[in-house]
């Protein structure tokens, strides 16, 4: 008799959603971003993303093999690939995927235990190891172009082809020449930049879809974007030479980082108030690095820094359990 009773602790209402399901959903939502990237940058974008996905899968295959089943390694590889410039050498993208998974995830004990976002760990590693390659931005070549010559560069060798078709991203032009770019280009994505970051409008739509499906916590994008919007409006309104708020919101990796990286449930705080602190922190750091730092873009560093602060936020801002007073 007693065996027929379902005995379990709460929660009793469970969804069918499993980790693998969520990962698959996120991977599907990234595919339109990749498609747009192929439209603008050609198949180079596809090769770079595929290299970083392969680089992410290799260590999983060697050591844990869990990430192969639930798709988390593919997701990390995809996210990393989308933050790289389209003209980067494929072996660098592969190495980045490898480092992402090993240093960003496996040494922490696997999925759900890492403190830092794996894709951003890989990107930060590449940024320190290959500062030139990762800041060389090719012109969008159109979907007919098969690859950029710099994609085929080999390790420890000088690239045979001198690439003439590179230039600065809208953010660097803003930073070093003080010139804003056409907002329309930033919405549509026809600018230089990382593979997945240029097309603002698609990222906003995907963010809205993820919010609708409740796959990401609404507080994170809201707090980040609100902070950046308010902060950049203040600067724009008070001083001269600052970018206008729309430009700041849609340039660089802010949208990509806000929708896909900062919202990682593993590396963001648990309590709602903690999440607000986290999001505002990211917004402030993005503005600090972009407006006053030496680098044109700081979304990656802002998110990594707030990831580092997350254990401390979790420690001091606890979820109020039911029945306890504040």
């Amino acid at each position: 008799m007693i065996r027929k009773l379902h005995l379990a602790t709460s929660p009793h209402l469970k969804d069918e959603e499993q980790t693998a399901h969520i990962m698959r959903e996120l991977i599907y939502t990234l595919l339109p971003v990749l498609a747009i990237a192929v439209y603008y940058f050609g198949f180079a974008a596809l090769w770079v993303v595929m290299s970083s996905v392969l680089g992410a899968l290799l260590p999983e295959w060697i050591w844990k093999r869990e990430g192969l089943k639930d798709g988390s390694a593919i997701l990390t590889g995809l996210l990393l690939g989308l933050t790289l410039p389209p003209g980067i050498a494929l072996w660098i993208a592969f190495l980045g995927g490898f480092v992402s998974i090993v240093v960003g995830k496996l040494v922490w004990g696997g999925l759900g235990q890492n403190v830092f976002n794996p894709a951003l760990v890989g990107r930060a590693f590449l940024q320190s190891a290959f500062p030139i390659a990762i800041t060389t931005w090719n012109n969008p070549g159109g979907w007919t172009s098969l690859y950029y010559p710099s994609n085929l560069a080999m390790p420890f060798m000088q690239s045979a082809h001198a690439d003439g078709l590179t230039g600065a991203t809208p953010l660097s032009i803003m930073k070093f020449e003080g010139q804003s770019s056409d907002i329309m280009h930033l919405f549509l994505g026809s600018t230089r930049g990382s593979i997945g970051e240029t097309c603002g409008i698609v990222l906003v739509l995907i963010g809205a879809y993820l919010l609708y499906k409740k796959l990401i916590n609404w507080r994170i994008p809201l707090s980040i974007l609100l902070t950046v919007l308010v902060g950049s409006s203040l600067f724009y309104w008070m001083g001269t030479g600052f970018a206008n708020p729309l430009f700041t919101l849609f340039s660089g990796g802010l949208m990509l980082g806000t929708v896909f990286m900062a919202t990682d449930p593993v590396t963001s705080p648990l309590a709602p108030r903690g999440i607000w602190i986290y999001g505002i922190g990211i917004g402030v750091l993005v503005l600090l690095i972009r407006y006053f730092g030496g680098l044109p873009e700081g979304v990656m560093y802002a998110i990594l820094l707030m990831n580092a602060f997350t254990p401390m936020i979790n420690r001091f801002v606890k979820i109020r359990t039911y029945g306890h007073k504040k």
Binding site: Q127, S128, L285, I289, G293, L295, G298, A302, A308
Partner: peptide, 11 residues
């Protein structure tokens, strides 16, 4: 990793 994140403050 924390040190890499602090490189964002360079300059």
């Amino acid at each position: 990793i924390i040190s890499m994140a602090f490189m964002g403050f360079a300059g």
